[in-house]
Amino acid sequence: MAVYHPDGPLILRLRAGDVDALGELYKRYKTSIYRTALAITRDQGAAEDILQESFLRLFTHAHRIRPDVPLHPWLYRVAVNLSYKWLRKQQKQQKATSDGVLEGLAASFHFLPEQWIERREAQEAIREAITQLPLGHRVVVVLFYLEELSLKEIAEILRIPEGTVKSRLHYARRFLRDTLEGRVPVGEIVYEFT
């Protein structure tokens, strides 16, 4: 089999159960996978668990991973799916204990004191607004803005059409603009994704 991607030899070694190869791949991808999980879940412990589970799955399923293509889309996909799973579990638990978590978050956001125009607080406001996005949209925002992945790469990771990625980004931008308007100087839409 032709191996022409730098991850390829390590994947072949993984198939033979080589833990050091797993260590090399971990060094290569741990930061991007961890921060993606962290940005989606906003929970450090959950992000570490997701990182751990992603690499253990890589180790377990190495024989099913192609050594001739980049590994990172596969890793992102696993991490995103695990993040979905974790968030859904959290939402169920929160629903059981308190039905008003998101409403409370939104309410606190609407009564912002004037000093929130300060940079750090404005950034926190944006991050809070991102957490109010539907999960599928939040993931696209994280992969696009934080990981700087292309629309095509995001489509490949999430296994959805590129047009759906564009429409999710468009919706997310509109939602963020509407939510942040008057609190953060977000300006006007100067282009469209669609």
Partner: peptide
């Protein structure tokens, strides 16, 4: 701002 907020 979205990019900066996430990256910060």
């Amino acid at each position: 701002m979205v990019k900066e907020a996430l990256q910060a």
